[in-house]
């Protein structure tokens, strides 16, 4: 049953445009990475985009050189700390509620207005990452809402849906979400032990099936032949602690070092993001 509180459009289902491949010259450029393997993309971070919220931030990660590939654009607002509703049970700590939502126009396919499981998944990972950074017992009986709108996802318009890149896109999205939420929390003046930032590293196979896989930071699915595994890490640099680790994909069991190096690269990416975050916050104070 359609949601009658929104305007749903025609009764018959509509089809996203199907493009013909006949009349076009070969558009597919060979998949090459435009950066060295241990360099992250440039990012732009700004706080205070939503003046009516207690804290807010906007993050934009640079578009890669390939045309048609959008960069990640995130907007985050933080409301609170505020008192919990009367019906809520007593909590000695601050209650975090995170909400991640893709805008309908953020991806190749139009997204609906109801949250789908992958967005809920992102929200849960984000909460885990932030919970480790916030000094939660300073605000008993109160709650804070962290809301992230993914204005534009990291996606290549040329690749087809069948390649299953969404899984890896989610990794990049989570990394960005953690960084932007940390900036918004700092903007809201909520005490944290440290600024947490997200970083992504991946194991990629660039030259055919039998080549030796390499570890890269900040992977873009459209720049790599095949991604074997990826991990997203939320890291507190001054404490040297990892608050959240999300690993996906499969690694050869013969090589345990591969896993360690993947995590190390993730931490390195997170440190890079942290530098931007600290720079942005320092700029705001001035």
């Amino acid at each position: 049953m359609a949601d009658r509180r929104r305007i749903n459009g025609p009764a018959g289902a509509t089809i996203p445009p199907v493009f013909d491949d006949v009349s076009t010259p070969k558009l597919k450029s060979p998949k090459t990475r435009s950066r060295p393997p241990n360099t992250t993309r440039k990012m732009y971070l700004k706080t205070g985009v939503t003046p009516s919220a207690s804290g807010s931030a906007y993050l934009e990660i640079e578009t890669s050189a390939t045309p048609g590939v959008s960069g990640l654009k995130l907007s985050c607002s933080v409301h609170g700390p505020r008192s919990l509703p009367r019906s809520a049970p007593f909590s000695p700590h601050i209650v975090l509620s995170t909400h991640v939502k893709y805008a309908p126009f953020a991806t190749k396919q139009r997204r609906g207005y109801l949250r789908d499981p992958s967005e809920r998944d992102l929200g849960i990972h984000l909460e885990a990452a932030l919970r480790g950074a916030i000094i939660a017992d300073r605000w008993p009986k109160s709650g804070v809402d962290i809301i992230i709108s993914i204005v534009e996802g990291d996606q290549d318009r040329e690749t087809s849906l069948l390649q299953g890149d969404e899984v890896w896109d989610m990794m990049n999205a989570l990394g960005g979400c953690i960084t932007v939420a940390a900036a918004a929390l700092a903007d809201a003046g909520i005490d944290c032990v440290d600024t947490v930032a997200g970083g992504v590293a991946a194991l990629v196979q660039d030259a055919g099936e039998d080549s030796i896989p390499t570890v890269v930071v900040d992977p873009i699915p459209s720049e790599h032949e095949k991604i074997l595994a990826a991990c997203c890490i939320a890291y507190l640099p001054t404490r040297d602690e990892v608050t959240n680790l999300w690993f996906r994909g499969d690694l050869p069991t013969s090589d345990i070092d591969l896993y360690t190096s993947l995590v190390e690269k993730g931490i390195q990416a997170s440190k890079n993001a942290n530098r931007v975050l600290v720079g942005c916050l320092a700029e705001t104070i001035e």
Binding site: R6, P10, S52, S75, V78, H99, Y113
Partner: peptide
């Protein structure tokens, strides 16, 4: 029904518009 406009306010754009609830009367 070829034009389908929808407005989303529940993005934390103001303290009274928090997500997780159906569209408010204002949004509708």
């Amino acid at each position: 029904d070829l034009l389908v406009p929808n407005i989303e306010l529940a993005t934390g754009s103001a303290p009274q518009f928090l997500p997780g609830v159906p569209p408010t009367a204002l949004a509708q």
